[in-house]
C-alpha cells in the first residue's frame, strides 16, 4: 500500500490530530507555568517573559512551529468534522447522545471554535502588541515591562470575563481531548486508565488555574 494512501487514511488523520493536540498541551503547560509565576513574583515573571520574547530559538524556531501546530490542529479539526457530517447525510429525528457519551466529547467543534475565537483575542492582546513593540516601533529593550502589560490587560472586567468563559470551554475541550489523544495514538486501556486520571486533573487544574490568574490580577491591581 502506497505511503501517500496511508497518510490520507482516517487513522493517520486521527493520529495527526492527537499528536498536534498533545504538542499544544505541552505548550499550554509551559504557558501556564510562566503565567502562574506572575501571581507570586513580578521579577521572575518578567525574566521568563523576556527570555521567551527574545531568545532566538524560541522566537524563530519554536514560535513558527507553535503557530503551525495551532493552524494544523484547527484545520484538521474542521476537515474531520466535515467528513463526519458527510458520513450521515440524513440526520436522526431523535438522537439521544447524552445516553451514551459526554457533552464534551460530542461537542469538540463548539469548544474548539470558542477557544479559536479566544486565541484571536489573545493574539491581538499580546502577540500583535509584542510584534508592533519590537519590530514596527523598534522600542528599546525593556526587561521589566511584561508584568505591567499583563496586569493592564486584566483591568477590564469584560476582557477578564471573556477569558474566564474561554477557559471553561478549554477545560471541556481538554477533558475529552487529552484522553482521546492517548486512545488515538494507541494507548491500551491498561496503561491508559491510570493516565486518564492525570489527563482529567490537567483538564481541570490548568484552565481553572488560568482563570485564577486572570481574576487574581483583576482584583489585586
Amino acid at each position: 500500500m502506497a505511503k501517500s494512501a496511508i497518510l490520507k487514511s482516517s487513522i493517520a488523520k486521527k493520529v495527526a490530530m492527537a499528536l498536534s493536540g498533545l504538542f499544544l498541551i505541552s505548550f499550554l503547560s509551559l504557558h501556564f507555568f510562566i503565567n502562574f509565576v506572575s501571581v507570586f513574583s513580578e521579577n521572575s515573571f518578567n525574566a521568563m517573559s523576556h527570555f521567551m520574547g527574545y531568545n532566538p530559538l524560541i522566537q524563530f524556531v519554536m514560535q513558527p512551529v507553535l503557530v503551525a501546530g495551532v493552524v494544523f490542529h484547527f484545520v484538521m479539526g474542521f476537515v474531520l468534522e466535515l467528513k463526519n457530517r458527510n458520513a450521515r447525510p440524513v440526520a436522526y429525528v431523535k438522537f439521544d447522545g447524552a445516553a451514551n457519551s459526554s457533552w464534551a466529547s460530542r461537542n469538540m467543534i463548539i469548544s474548539g471554535l470558542v477557544v479559536l475565537a479566544f486565541l484571536g483575542l489573545h493574539m491581538y492582546d499580546f502577540w500583535f502588541h509584542e510584534m508592533v513593540y519590537k519590530y514596527v516601533e523598534s522600542n528599546v529593550i525593556d526587561e521589566t515591562r511584561y508584568y505591567d502589560e499583563l496586569v493592564a490587560k486584566f483591568e477590564s472586567p469584560v476582557r477578564t470575563g471573556l477569558y474566564c468563559v474561554a477557559f471553561v470551554l478549554l477545560a471541556l475541550h481538554l477533558w475529552h481531548g487529552f484522553t482521546s489523544s492517548l486512545q488515538s495514538v494507541g494507548f491500551d486501556n491498561k496503561i491508559g486508565k491510570s493516565l486518564h486520571k492525570i489527563c482529567y486533573a490537567f483538564a481541570i487544574i490548568v484552565p481553572f488555574g488560568f482563570i485564577f490568574i486572570a481574576l487574581f490580577h483583576h482584583f489585586n491591581n
Partner: peptide
C-alpha cells in the same frame, strides 16, 4: 486493507466519544 476499505465505504472518523462501546 481493512482500514482502506472502511475509508472507501464512507464511514466517518472516530473521535473517541465511547458511545459505540456503550
Amino acid at each position: 486493507n481493512m482500514v482502506r476499505q472502511m475509508d472507501e465505504e464512507g464511514f466517518g472518523n472516530c473521535t473517541n466519544t465511547g458511545a459505540c462501546e456503550i
